[in-house]
Design a protein around this nucleic acid. Structure first.
Lengths: 193, 193
DNA sequence: GTCTATATTTTGATAGAC
DNA sequence: GTCTATCAAAATATAGAC
């Protein structure tokens, strides 16, 4: 677990997160945050000296809550794999329901080459972890008889992470949350035994 | 067809396109372009008075070349549907092979709420057209016996556009062009009769 | 069509008082 | 921990000479 932020720092991070998911990292300034929070930009710099510090804190908070909240499946109970899949969709559905927002990782991936090396590493690392997690879940779920699909678990995991990321990106531009639900349903249908 | 740009305007647009696909719209400035092209920012403003004008020109060039270059399938020759699908993948593979780049539409979708209304409309319109195009291709291809899949053509089109968009976004962060190839192969396998 | 010069605003950031 | 004051650099843009 990363250091738990203080009250003000957490408010700054949360506000920043919301704006970045809407506009992108480069379109959110300390002035925007100061205005929304009713404080001065100097106060924000006290908590997060540089914008990279702020970005890093937000990426870690977000990336952490995403995979760590999924209950580990039990091979003895095949249905627990489907439950893990659904648990993985929960935060995605939440972002999907948030008007004008899309996934922090996807947004920052789009701006990748403009990010500082530290931020790039955090974004890349998230996708690597997500791929590994889903790959394992699919492989073990198939072995347990909970999932059924052709081809490698790695290939299916790549298809799924891509489809989810793209869906939440497109739903923002089309302002259509149902787009994400449709894609999640398709993916689920592809693996359920 | 939109007005064909002059030589300098085209060079500006192409350079801008390349940088935006790497960094995002908000991370590319007139100063960046001036430096790379060996001209002054004032010259760029002559061709594109505002950044929105430049963004609009690039979005139109890109969105136009994407779907319009696909040969219309012939119901009498079922294999022409598969060919149309492959033709649709060609520009995606090209972007995929370009180091550090991802799809202009996906990148600008990530920054959606920071864009001027004109740019937003262009991005939304692209996704709407892409969805409609693929939906029709899938539906007619299935009727012609070229494709085979369960569920609606609309649902399959949503899954495909999302997967492609997400794949090209993730490949940028993971610096792994093979990620896109893997997803394209999975999608192809899902529909080929 | 391109340049020099300049204007305006915004941005990320620091020093030091309270 | 928050503020006022201030800064240097960058970003978008315009006026007018060549």
């Amino acid at each position: 677990m990363t250091k738990p932020l203080g009250k003000t720092a957490a408010a700054i991070a949360d506000t920043f997160l919301g704006l970045v998911m809407e506009r992108g990292y480069n379109a959110v300034s300390y002035a925007d945050l100061a205005r929304l929070l009713g404080i001065r930009t100097a106060s924000i710099h006290y908590h997060f000296p540089s914008k990279t510090d702020l970005g890093l804190a937000v990426l870690r908070r977000y990336g952490q809550g995403f995979l760590e909240s999924i209950p580990a499946p039990d091979p003895a109970r095949p249905q627990s794999y489907g439950a893990a899949f659904d648990a993985m969709m929960a935060p995605i559905r939440e972002v999907s329901a948030t008007k004008g927002a899309s996934c922090l990782m996807g947004v920052m991936s789009a701006e990748y080459q403009s990010l500082s090396p530290q931020l790039q590493a955090e974004v890349s690392g998230f996708f690597a972890r997500q791929q590994a997690f889903l790959e394992t879940l699919l492989e073990e779920g198939r072995a347990a008889g909970a999932f059924s699909f052709s081809g490698s678990a790695a290939g299916m995991a790549r298809l799924m992470t891509s489809a989810l990321q793209g869906a939440i990106l497109i739903k923002k531009a089309r302002q259509d949350p149902a787009h994400v639900d449709s894609v999640i349903a398709s993916l689920r249908a592809m693996i359920m035994a």
